[in-house]
Design a protein around this nucleic acid. Sequence first.
DNA 1: CCCCGGACTTGACGCAAATCAAGGTCCCCG
DNA 2: CGGGGACCTTGATTTGCGTCAAGTCCGGGG
Lengths: 252, 252
Amino acid sequence: MTMRLADSGEGGELKRCVHDYQVNCGNCRLNGICLPLALETDDIKQLDEIIQRSKPLQKSQHLYREGDRFQSVYAVRSGALKAYKTTDDGREQVTGFYFPGEILGMDGISNNSHASSAKALETAAVCEIPFSSLERLSAMMPNLQRHFFQLMSREITEDQQLITLLSKNSADERVASLMLSISNRNAKRKLSATQFRLPMSRVDIGNYLGLTVETVSRVFSRMQKMDILLVDNKEIRILDTEGLKKMANLGT
Amino acid sequence: MTMRLADSGEGGELKRCVHDYQVNCGNCRLNGICLPLALETDDIKQLDEIIQRSKPLQKSQHLYREGDRFQSVYAVRSGALKAYKTTDDGREQVTGFYFPGEILGMDGISNNSHASSAKALETAAVCEIPFSSLERLSAMMPNLQRHFFQLMSREITEDQQLITLLSKNSADERVASLMLSISNRNAKRKLSATQFRLPMSRVDIGNYLGLTVETVSRVFSRMQKMDILLVDNKEIRILDTEGLKKMANLGT
DNA sequence: CCCCGGACTTGACGCAAATCAAGGTCCCCG
DNA sequence: CGGGGACCTTGATTTGCGTCAAGTCCGGGG
């Protein structure tokens, strides 16, 4: 049975979680990326109080599943997750990868039920932000309301980027774009932009980019042969960022 | 001038708009679809006051362009619009079609600048909702805040539907899905679900579904030959809804 | 340590949709 | 009312990626 954060709703249980995971938004090194960006110290304290931190998810554990009742959005603290939908014929469409500082779960608001599932790609810790509390606080704190509107809007523009990628770009361009996206997001978190370990499998990459595993693999080989990337299984090193950008063929 | 199916529904309303812009949310026949869904009569009056109604857009006029400063979101009152982005190599990705009662422009919130352009596919009237006022009202009216969160979330889930469609479905399935989507949205507006006039060109459909014009045209021909649709240029009549659903191959 | 299964790579082949090409049709404007 | 350009359809050909198949690599458990 899958362990869900929301399940640890009992008083004693919750308290223990808080004790064990004494991080708070004020001292979190991700607080430039995550929710509290625009807030005053006082406001952060209030936000901090509604956020629940619990024990990490193990690899391949679900944070929530398609159809689950929507109660919270989640901020990634460490590790990585994927969000995905399962099509009627059983195939999987990955709709996003989420790294530390990023927020997921917002697609559940419209129906009070999650429109996708979220699963840990590796051991991951998340902050749970109960949506009802977030709504209440937002009404009181204009900055928070605005910030959350912006977060949702960003999710929309990112989805639209992906739509364009899927419908207009070749396999090479898609994979190159994803590598650049991961590189940029790493840079934002003060990690290396040129060397990283992919937390997701080739299958996941394929299911995200609308390609088969074989094609993804072939693209990596091609990039390696062109001395753009150095690929050692999940270890990636970008040798030629300009070449990669050219291959991605995006003005960005 | 030829009588058109779609005009018979919206034409009267358009005429009234042209004469005077004194429509208000309280008496708008779209208010079950649009923003004020969850509001009390008093609240609607307040919302009504911030909404600006202006003279209709002519076909192919822009409502806003990619990069424009973001100030408002818009509700379609009559007609139809498309939202699209232009890729670096000059091609066009249509990210959505918007019919009466639907809201567009929310992708501009994250950067205070529109991430896409919006253009009228035919003569269209829109309600402009200044975002700053909407934010102010939202903080005061929890129902409005929630409703707007839900609207944005719906935009996200719809984009994710499109992502899945683009990456997993054949040309036949894509076109069939779009026809069903338009049919359903018509039904919501109390118009015929089986007979309508497409406001967009084949090129627009292709640019939305990630297909070329030729392919779109061929799919229409195929559907006609299978007695699923009756296609007369932009006039569409659905002859076999079940067959269409089967062709779309979506559990919905 | 070795074995096993899942993840990844590589090659051969086929197909759905893109591209190229040529007309046909609608309708806007002079 | 008639000319022209945009839009649409249809056919022939090409091609990028999917599919199928056959390994190879790697990591974890006995």
